[in-house]
Design a protein around this nucleic acid. Structure first.
Lengths: 233, 233
DNA sequence: CGCTCGATTGATAGCGTTCAAATTGTGTGG
DNA sequence: CCACACAATTTGAACGCTATCAATCGAGCG
């Protein structure tokens, strides 16, 4: 159950430099943010921050944890449209539309900073830095979505899964184990596959020595081998 | 082959009110756009406006015709990530990134208005109207992309195809024939299906009387019947 | 220890692809 | 207007990938 645990303090915010306020000086933060009604909200894994169709009054910044944005069909089939990481901004549909276009659900213990869209809109208009920071994020969102459409529409199961693993472990030292965070079911919902298909390929690759897995952590032993399977770009 | 056929004249532009300049007064158009180096470019069907990876120096507005944005895998498999219609803005990756993230290819005789990104960036900063117009379009892009990911990841072939047809004919009078514009191959590339699968279902539905088709035009005879197949939301 | 839930594995079925051939449609030149 | 060539679509048959159904395994927890 999400619970408000305080008011945001931008100056000391742990993710200040990954947020849309990264470009602001301390002066600006002090003056511009003064009348800003932020709340820090703590969530357990599985909490719903907002649901598709619900009036969109707040945007959020993810301070800690991991969140999935999902959409569902009437019969329950679910697609994850994005995995959010620390510093990501989400829930900004309300800038243009009445309602949120997806569900936002935590997939680990998380903390989000809730920003009233009205305040954020004012800030955006009066502040070119923030305006640009938001634009950059939106354009990146669009590119990510385009990339994902290629994954979903054009690739086969093993290619989807291999690209996912490589992307998940991107920028991490070889020989470092990484927390996988997602269940088989969530990986399936992200890639448009079933639990069983995901499980089968991971098992195969474990047996073949491409990857190792233990207690929710994963290690890519043979990135080159995986890349061949992934059909990159 | 794309060819420049003139300089844009915003005041008399046929799609002015569908463009990002819709909110501007005539005064503003006259003053703000004076130093703006726009070109009107005419394209035949199949022309490439830009390619993925190419430096992104221009954004474009589609004045006339239809354009597909595509991404491809190394082995040639291609995904259409968006179909652009009259008034749509595209090619704005350069605001943030070096290169375009997809290919832009016309699928009918078309005209685009080419806008240097540098000019557009200035305009955006100095003009809240344009800034908002672009924001609205980007946010809509993101929502569309999310919707598409649900289509691609969660739906089965007939559901994808039925939703596509319904969306394509959206907002048109029943009993009006609509130009389909896309080939079977393009419908396939959009929905992540093969030509044959698309063709088979369309044939079935023609035989069953759900749709009629002739000379590239289509008529949805039984929208309710199709909706059942489409598994809406 | 036994329960529950997620993951694994196996067997089977069916959907969509692939390959191939036939058919229709379109544009061109006579 | 017709004949022809070429492209797009349709249709058929067979295959293979992924989903589905079902059973088992294993880890975490009361």
């Amino acid at each position: 159950m999400p619970s408000i645990i305080g008011k945001g303090h931008c100056l000391t915010c742990p993710i200040r430099y990954r947020s849309i306020f990264a470009g602001l000086s301390e002066e600006m933060l002090k003056t511009d943010i003064r009348n800003f009604h932020t709340s820090i909200i703590s969530c357990e894994s599985g909490d719903t921050i907002y649901e598709q169709g619900e009036p969109s009054e707040y945007a959020y910044t993810l301070r800690k944890g991991l969140i999935k944005l999902t959409k569902s069909l009437s019969d329950g089939r679910t697609q994850i449209v994005k995995i959010l990481k620390k510093g990501d901004l989400f829930g900004f549909d309300g800038f243009v539309e009445e309602a949120y276009n997806h569900n936002a659900i935590t997939i680990s213990q998380s903390e989000v900073c809730r920003l009233p869209l009205k305040d954020l809109a004012k800030l955006r208009i009066n502040n070119a830095e923030i305006n640009s920071a938001m634009m950059e994020r939106w354009l990146k969102n669009i590119r990510d979505a385009e990339d994902m459409m290629l994954e979903l529409g054009a690739k086969k199961a093993p290619e989807k899964l291999a690209s996912f693993l490589l992307k998940w472990c991107e920028g991490v030292n070889e020989k470092d184990w990484i927390k996988l965070e997602l269940s088989r079911s969530e990986i399936g919902a992200l890639l448009g596959l079933t639990i069983e298909t995901v499980s089968r390929f991971l098992s195969d690759w474990r047996r073949l020595g491409f990857i190792e897995e233990s207690k929710g952590f994963i290690l890519i032993v043979d990135p080159q081998g995986l890349k061949k399977k992934a059909c990159i770009t």
